[in-house]
Write a protein that binds this DNA or RNA. Structure first.
Length: 571
RNA sequence: CGGGGUGUGGCGCAGUCUGGUAGCGCAUUCGACUGGGGGUCGAAAGGCCGGAAGUUCAAAUCUUCUCACCCCGACCA
């Protein structure tokens, strides 16, 4: 591709609404342009990357025996009513009517559509298992789209759905998809990690997320530093402390704590560690309020907590008015002693003796409080977020915490949708069996942004070779002045093109600095510079995007040299 | 949806408080010089100041309404 014939829409300045590095660089490199909140146009440069990601995903899905289909973006309400999600999904589902006043929505996901298809077209166990996927535009009317393509309302997703006679068949396909995803992210050239995940509102049991590791990631991942365990912090289990609880040594005493509310304030005021305090949070339960008791230095995990049967899901804090009515004090003075609501105690808090807590009276706390003496002993549960250094739940080493961007998610759906929508097949005995399902998503457009978050420097993007928009930037110095430079450049361009190497040939009448800056900003992995200077010595200059400095390559060897370079970088 | 903020040539911004001829940098076009890290000089094109209503001799500027966008919170690939 000649730059003179290509929309290279690079910017020197960053548009003011870009927050994170990938968004800034995608705008500056001329990959995307915003149309409206959460809606983006892909420019030629960006689309080349998107297509590369898409093709790698497609190839690996095909290799895994999945079949590609393409379902509509616009979906009829009836199917969503049948699955029960028309009412459950909320405002993220964009709904509208057609001219006949029939209700439709823009598909945020396609379980209903594929289940509808399969219940008509798959009748026999002989057709199972089967796995169908599509690479298609999704629409989710996010409350707050942000970070450019990372969290947009319209985005490109690969979604796959598998159908099975039983759980063991699902497990096989699930494992195969796990492997396939690992292959995909390896080929994309990204550092990633598969983690145990929460199933969210899609429903079902087993689930893993695939995260691209990047400091800017929105998710926290807990992993064993010595073993295989890895889980989203949302999910990661916090073990009960080992050993016996220490003996009670102090009497329970009321202490005056005027205007001291937060754990920090209390612990400083009373000169104790936050870990010797207890915090009591009131949340809404199925029958009135429920108190959650955690150690002062621990943080509540809303996802895990909302799974306890008495707790409302999603987790919702009690209103200050409700608290005043029930306890008679403000939020900072609540404690579990003589609190007239059901109490859930975290393992950490249950292991404390002689602890500090609110006295349910403004300006007072209790010290020397002990379970079983000052308040009833209760079974402890897991309510908190794990922290760096916690023991790993698999008993293997301790946990570390890393940041990640969720780019893939696989679920064992089970019969949630097939049951609701009556997707049945006949088994070997001629009995009707409800299908068992799995679903497997990859955020194709998000991967583009995640790749940049993971691979960039001051000058711009550094594409992994397999998803780079072009493989080589061919930069002639002052070609308009030198016939010799022009000839060598044109010649090399044609040779590389003939080898099916994607070359971006900067044939503009630009100054060298502009060419260098542009090539680096858009992240082309390999650069060849042709100038009078080098030609005098019969040399062409090569520099990899990550290299510190350039090297000279004899002109006659340059094609061979490039071939080797590309193979070295390819997987 | 709650809280905070911004709308002025394509992009980044000043001007608004204190009403009086719409500005700067980048980008674009033309010319000259320059030619290995976003170069210099000169010339040009491009904006009814988000929209509507009002106050006023006069509104980018004041008032009211409205729309859009951004940031912080709960959702998710």
């Amino acid at each position: 591709m000649r730059v003179s014939r290509f929309l290279l829409a690079t910017l020197k300045e960053t548009p003011s609404d870009a927050e994170i590095i990938s968004h800034k660089l995608m705008l500056r490199a001329g990959m995307i342009r915003k149309l409206a909140a959460g809606l983006y146009t892909w420019l030629p440069l960006g689309l080349r990357v998107l297509h590369k990601v898409e093709n790698i995903v497609r190839e690996e899905m095909d290799n895994a025996g999945a079949q590609e289909v393409l379902m509509p973006t616009v979906q009829p309400a009836e199917l969503w009513q049948e699955s029960g999600r028309w009412d459950k999904y909320g405002h993220e589902l964009l709904r509208f009517e057609d001219r006949h006043a029939r209700e439709f929505c823009l598909g945020p996901t396609h379980e209903e559509i594929i289940t509808h298809l399969i219940r008509h077209d798959i009748r026999s166990y002989k057709q199972l298992p089967a796995n169908f996927y599509q690479i298609q535009t999704k629409f989710r009317d996010e409350i707050r789209p942000r970070f450019g393509i990372m969290r947009s309302r319209e985005f490109l997703m690969k979604d796959a759905y598998s159908f099975h006679l039983d759980q063991s068949s699902l497990q096989k396909t699930y494992d195969l998809m796990f492997e396939t995803y690992s292959k995909i992210f390896k080929r994309l050239g990204l550092k990633f990690r598969a983690v145990l995940a929460d199933t969210g509102n899609i429903g079902g049991n087993g689930s893993h997320e695939f995260h691209v590791l990047a400091d800017s990631g929105e998710d926290a991942i807990a992993y064993s530093t010595t073993g295989d365990y890895a889980a989203n912090v949302e999910m990661a289990q916090a073990l009960a402390p080992n050993g016996e609880r220490p003996q009670a040594t102090a009497p329970m005493t009321v202490v005056e704590t005027p205007n001291q509310h937060t754990i920090d304030e209390i612990s400083q005021f009373l000169k104790v560690k936050p870990s010797q305090c207890v915090k009591t949070l009131l949340v809404k339960g199925k029958n009135g309020l429920v108190a959650l008791v955690l150690r002062g230095d621990h943080t509540l995990n809303a996802i895990k907590t909302a799974k306890y049967p008495d707790i409302s899901s999603p987790l919702t804090f009690a209103d200050p008015e409700e608290i005043r009515e029930l306890v008679g004090c403000e939020i900072g003075s609540i404690g579990p002693v003589n609190l007239n609501v059901p109490i859930l105690v975290d393992h950490g808090a249950a292991h404390l003796a002689d602890f500090i807590c609110g006295a349910n009276k403004e300006g007072q706390h209790l010290s020397g409080v002990n379970w079983g003496r000052d308040l009833p002993e209760s079974q402890s549960v897991d309510l908190r977020n794990v922290e760096t250094g916690d023991p790993s739940p698999d008993g293997n080493g301790v946990l570390g915490i890393a940041r990640g961007i969720e780019v893939g998610h696989i679920f064992q759906l089970g019969k949630t949708y097939s049951q609701a929508m009556q997707a049945l097949v006949l088994d070997e005995q001629g009995h009707s069996v409800i299908l068992t399902m799995g679903c497997y998503g990859i955020g194709v457009s998000r991967i583009v942004a995640a790749a940049i978050e993971q691979n960039h420097d001051k000058s711009g993007i550094i594409w992994p070779q397999n998803i780079a928009p072009f493989t080589i930037a061919l930069l002639p110095m002052n070609m308009h002045k030198s016939q010799r430079v022009r000839e060598v450049a044109e010649d090399l361009y044609n040779t590389l093109q003939a080898m099916d190497i994607e070359v971006l040939f900067d044939d503009r009448k630009e100054r060298p600095g502009v060419m260098f800056a542009n090539a680096e900003l858009i992240g082309i992995p390999h650069r060849l510079v042709i100038g009078e200077r080098g030609l005098d010595k019969g040399e062409i200059e090569y520099k990899g995007r990550r290299d510190q400095s350039a090297q000279s390559v004899p002109m006659d060897n340059v094609v061979e040299f490039i071939k080797e370079r590309l193979e070295m970088n390819a997987l």
